[in-house]
Amino acid sequence: MGIIKENVSKDIKAQKAAQIENMSKIDQAFAKYNLEVDEAAVEKAVKRIIDEKVPANNTPEVKKFLYGSVELTSLHTTDTEESILAMIEKVNKQDSLYPGMPHVAAVCVYPVFVNLVRNSLEVDGVEITSVSGSFPSSQSRMEVKVAETQLAVADGATNIDIVLPVGKFLSEDYEGVADDISELKEACGDVPMKVILETCCLGSLSNVKRASILSMYAGADYIKTSTGKEKAGATPEGVYVMCQAIKEYYEQTGVMVGLKPAGGINTPMDAIVLYTIAQEVLGDKWLTNEMFRLGTSRLAQQLIDELNA
């Protein structure tokens, strides 16, 4: 009887192995993860973190860390060379105006302003992030997306933020999504690339998990919540699921992928909540100004105001 059970077990394992071998590479990747997210359980976990852990992080030290993680962003239709230069001037003058504060992690602009930023930014260690790939819709020919990305890198971008092709994702063209991301990653060369999931458009937290895993397998160096151009931005629940995906991907591959919440981060407390979620799910290894970024246009000054109150 024991031999029969052993043979049956071997047959089942062989069948499963054959099934996996016949899957596409994307399906093989998905098979390693539980992509069905219990939304009620996520809400409960987030509520516990907010109630029990956030108060302890409402400190000057955490706020200074958050300031040093900010990607100071200007992505307006009304942006001008003058307005971008005014933003860069604030960064350049920070040491004299706010001694003891870290500098922001990056400035984030449209590709047309990258060369201007490169020539005017005087602070070492501040990255130049450019949105690219037909931001914010990602609805353009691939040749256009690649050319825009290559030009941004040539002009001096040291980070590139692209948008997941949400339409393809919602049509379940996962191979097409992965191909787009991989091609843009190749266009970036050695420059780190963030993939914006536009979580508010994905329909469910299960899709947030799936999009996170797909983006990382396709080459994302960071996953980012939002463009800030849609109906909503970063939510605690979405960030929690993205952190889970990053952790599980790291356990499977040994590759650390960064996190960038963006959009709708309106107060220091919003940022503290997201920081605390990352701390609880990912641990201190991810709590560096390189691995944890915040995309925002207003938070930096609010943090300075609170720290100097």
Rank of each mutant, 00 (worst) to 15 (best):
E21W: 07
N58G: 02
P136K: 05
E127K: 13
R298M: 09
P102S: 01
I88R: 00
I160A: 02
I304W: 08
V62A: 03
A220M: 12
D124H: 08
S204D: 15
K185I: 00
P268R: 08
V114G: 02
L35F: 10
L184I: 10
Y67R: 08
I277G: 00
G125I: 08
Y250Q: 15
E290D: 12
E71Y: 06
Y174Q: 08
L197W: 11
Y240N: 09
P236Q: 01
D79S: 01
K231M: 14
D27N: 13
R141M: 05
R118I: 03
I128Q: 00
G156D: 01
T276Q: 11
A17T: 09
G156H: 03
V70N: 12
E43S: 14
C108E: 14
D27I: 03
A309L: 13
N159A: 11
D190R: 12
I50K: 15
V107I: 11
G233E: 01
V195G: 05
Y275I: 06
E81K: 12
K145V: 02
W286E: 00
M142T: 11
K5W: 11
V70T: 09
K168M: 05
S215R: 00
I272R: 04
T267I: 04
L35E: 04
L307G: 11
D79M: 05
S297G: 10
K209Y: 10
G228W: 07
M256H: 10
Y222F: 15
R118A: 07
T227M: 07
A278M: 07
K93F: 08
E290Y: 13
T235M: 06
A278T: 02
A56T: 07
S138A: 15
L164Y: 09
V109N: 01
M216Y: 12
L75M: 09
L294A: 07
P192N: 04
I246C: 15
M142K: 05
I50V: 12
S182A: 15
A154F: 04
K13P: 03
A157W: 09
Q302Y: 14
K260Y: 03
V107F: 06
L72Y: 14
K93G: 08
T253D: 10
T59L: 13
Q302F: 15
E290W: 11
V46D: 11
K247F: 01
T78L: 03
E148Q: 10
D11W: 06
A211F: 09
E81F: 05
Q150I: 01
L294K: 05
Y217V: 04
M23H: 14
S9G: 01
T235L: 13
D51A: 13
N266K: 15
N58D: 15
S137E: 15
G189M: 06
D95M: 06
